[in-house]
């Protein structure tokens, strides 16, 4: 089913702040097998000029994708989430995410397309800290595959 084109440009309210925990960053770094001390050792992070440990570049996706849930699950949009695959992902950083950040995400639908029966949804998530400073923007392309029998 084609998605409702009128959703293009729609922006959802900012999410309640997500507090970035030092141990959550450590857990993520260990899960990807990355021993870079900037992720786990405050002194090593400070030696690089950061006020505290920083998160690996893709860590923030867990936050922006959860925020995108309010778009994906919007019943008016009509996306069949059971058939969704991740098409593209991009990040642009003003600064790295770091322990102690309280991050809020504002999601906007950038594009809604239908190609060969596939529904394609582009969502932009703007991530700001509690002072309102921009931290990172995440662009996520989701593709809802056409049913096989169609």
């Amino acid at each position: 089913m084609a998605l409702d084109q009128s959703f293009v440009g729609r922006t959802y309210p900012p999410t309640p702040p997500y507090e970035v925990g030092r141990e959550k960053i450590r857990e993520f770094a260990e899960a990807i097998g990355d021993a870079n001390p900037a992720y786990t050792d405050t002194e090593a992070a400070k030696a690089l000029g950061h006020p505290d440990v920083i998160a690996p570049p893709t860590f923030v996706f867990a936050i922006t994708f959860k925020a995108a849930g309010q778009v994906v699950e919007d019943p008016q949009l009509g996306l069949d989430y059971s058939r969704v695959v991740h098409g593209d992902q991009k990040f642009a950083y003003t600064r790295p995410v770091r322990a102690g950040d309280r991050l809020s995400v504002t999601s906007t639908i950038e594009a809604v397309k239908s190609l060969a029966g596939n529904d394609i949804l582009d969502i932009r998530g703007e991530v700001h800290d509690e002072t309102g400073e921009h931290v990172v923007t995440a662009w996520t392309k989701l593709v809802s595959r056409a049913p096989e029998e169609a």
Partner: peptide
């Protein structure tokens, strides 16, 4: 790069 913060943009297609 040494410092992960050196990455200012990163994008992929799956």
């Amino acid at each position: 790069a040494g410092d992960p913060a050196a990455v200012v943009e990163y994008g992929v297609r799956f």
